[in-house]
């Protein structure tokens, strides 16, 4: 009676279907990782989870001083606070995924040399934490910007679209950086800089017109190389009724770019996963 083996280990990699199956099997661990991040995060702090509300409010304050008071930035006719908060919802999510996801492998190197689990989980589980943060900022937004926002089916679609795009783009970048930083530790130094640069290049506290007006029309699609461009456009258009996006008006280049970041990141990560323990 020959039982069939439940696991085969060999030099060959596993198929996409097997990878996804395995991720599903290990979903409990992904949740455990996210839970750990939450529990550890506010351990021994005085204010505890209140920080999740305080942090976005504090950065909003600083942005107000700089972009509104000092620079008098254009916000497409929407009140500055509402406009900026709507951007911070997704920037916070994007940035958390990018910076925490990129660092996750190096941080867990002790574990990587001792125990097997799909390494993807370390990066992917950061999204659960980021998602909870996003909900906090969304809550603030609903309180503060209720009067300025327009709620419709299109707004909901825009929100979900932007959420999916920012998930794909930030996870895609994080997968690339996490896998690369195992080989090139220099990236650890570079990532905070990239995140800061991306913040200033993204139309979070100012209108994207700043960029579109200063770049010739035929190169404008290049702006979508910054994933936040497409994400914010999709979300704000219905939210503030800035423009009526039809299917053909969607930032398709941005969408394609976000998808390709994720797919390529996944493939590269899986390819290097097998060598990680030898390099760490």
């Amino acid at each position: 009676m020959a039982k069939s083996p439940s696991l085969e280990i060999s030099a060959k990699g596993s198929s996409l279907r097997k990878q996804v199956n395995e991720l599903w099997q290990y979903r409990g661990l992904g949740i455990s990782f996210a839970k750990r991040d939450f529990q550890v995060r506010y351990a021994q702090t005085f204010l505890g989870p209140l920080w999740a509300l305080l942090q976005p409010l504090l950065s909003l304050g600083v942005l107000y001083l700089v972009f509104q008071k000092a620079l008098n930035a254009n916000t497409e006719g929407v009140p500055f606070i509402s406009y900026t908060l709507s951007g911070l919802i997704f920037w916070g999510f994007f940035n958390f995924n990018l910076s925490q996801g990129s660092a996750s492998l190096i941080q867990a190197r002790g574990m990587l040399q001792k125990i097997y689990f799909p390494r993807l989980l370390l990066v992917l589980s950061k999204s659960l934490v980021a998602l909870v943060d996003l909900l906090f900022v969304l809550l603030i937004f609903l309180f503060v910007a209720f009067a300025d926002a327009h709620f419709s089916f299109a707004t909901l679609a825009g929100f979900l679209g932007a959420l999916i795009l920012s998930l794909l783009a930030s996870q895609g970048l994080a997968l690339w950086f996490a896998a690369l930083s195992v080989r090139f530790r220099d990236l650890q130094q570079l990532i905070p800089f990239i995140s800061q640069m991306l913040f200033f290049l993204s139309p979070i506290a100012y209108s994207p017109d700043l960029w579109t007006e200063s770049i010739p029309l035929k190169y404008q699609d290049l702006l979508y190389l910054n994933p936040m461009m497409g994400i914010l456009e999709m979300w704000r258009a219905p939210l503030f009724e800035l423009e009526n996006l039809t299917l053909s008006d969607l930032p398709w280049w941005g969408i394609i770019w976000c998808f390709s970041l994720f797919i390529s990141g996944w493939i590269y990560f899986q390819k290097s996963e097998r060598k990680m323990a030898d390099l760490l």
Partner: peptide
Amino acid sequence: LSRITAPSEGRVLAY
């Protein structure tokens, strides 16, 4: 065996 690193050749079957 614990799948921390991949083999260069051969295989392991676990039941």
